[in-house]
Design a protein around this nucleic acid. Structure first.
Lengths: 187, 187
DNA sequence: CATAGCTATGTACGCTCGTACACATGACCT
DNA sequence: AGGTCATGTGTACGAGCGTACATAGCTATG
């Protein structure tokens, strides 16, 4: 946007540009090294900013983590929305779910790693619990556009389990196996 | 209890079962504080042994974690075996699965925490991947005593997802909801 | 230009960590 | 009994961490 220093008579009290970049860098580090390997120094290194910048923009490391996970969860939930929003009837919703699992979830294992990292982190840090629950709620809401609440909840759990086991297993599920599992449950 | 330091210390001087007790202490610490909070010093404190004892019995902290997770996975898999071993026909196997989820999995959330901690740890430490896979394999094997391999795999995933979402959610699933989900899939 | 005040940085402190290693101890053999 | 040596312990070291904080730099104003 307006990077021109001469803009705005009113002083910009805050520079969201850098803060955003730091959150993105944090996401990158979490995915790469895990929450355990996520430190002020590592994030600063990745974002190419001085260490002091971390404490300036965030009051603690937990705050960085919370913001990073929130951003990731929002992006992930949006994928759910998009896939399912395109569906018009129940059959195409089923197809959307299968595509979602195959392409967006199993297809990018980093997202699963992020999810599991979040689950673990949330178990110890109450601030992150709300993020987890908001994420789950949003994916359930998306499913409820096409399925009744009970089905949505169970289907959501099934998807999570399928993705988790598929990614962690030595032999990932084939698209046909995914289709089989989802259809068996839904029909 | 003999709290006299000299007595206790002398008694501990030669302690063949110490390694085992350290692994149990490690399990306790992992469940309590997470892998991130599991340190040589904390394990030693819980087990009431000197710090040096850790490096004597284990060549690294990763080795402690690996042994602890292996032990936990074995115990968890045994629960699967017992529940399902008691079943004689398909219907009682379904009941066994429902009981397993309700009483052993959702009923003791610590086990779920351990599982997720293991998943995260395994993502970064190859030595732990074999533990995860062995665990999954054993629960699938147990299910295959009563269901065909495809069903066993899908059911295993469904169980994992149900437990995960139930425990992490603000409103845990009721026994009836669990029964509904499992029966809907299996019948 | 001078100045004031907000933004941003470099550095240092206190702490915890994993690990190494010199040394103490006591069980067992002869 | 006395010596040997695996078993077990206490301590110290260097690295990396989160965070605090004095101050440098810039920009809007007078």
């Amino acid at each position: 946007m307006t990077d021109d220093p001469r803009t705005a008579r009113r002083a910009r009290r805050h520079d969201p540009g850098r803060r955003d970049r730091l959150i993105d860098a944090a996401l990158h580090v979490i995915a790469e090294r895990g929450v355990a390997g996520t430190t002020h120094r590592e994030i600063a290194r990745v974002a190419d900013v001085p260490l002091g910048s971390m404490t300036y923009h965030f009051s603690s490391l937990d705050e960085v983590l919370a913001e990073a996970f929130t951003r990731h969860a929002a992006a992930a939930a949006e994928v759910f929305d998009e896939r399912l929003g395109a569906a018009t009837d129940r059959d195409s919703a089923i197809e959307a779910v299968i595509t979602l699992i195959r392409d967006d979830l199993i297809g990018s294992p980093n997202d699963l790693v992020m999810a599991v990292e979040l689950y673990v982190a949330a178990a110890r840090k109450p601030a992150l619990r709300a993020v987890t629950q908001g994420w789950m709620q949003r994916s359930r809401d998306a499913l409820e556009r096409h399925f009744d609440p009970t089905t949505a909840r169970e289907l959501d759990a099934l998807i999570e389990g399928l993705v988790l086991h598929s990614v962690l297993s030595t032999d990932p599920m084939t698209p046909d196996q995914i289709r089989h599992a989802v259809e068996r449950y839904l029909r």
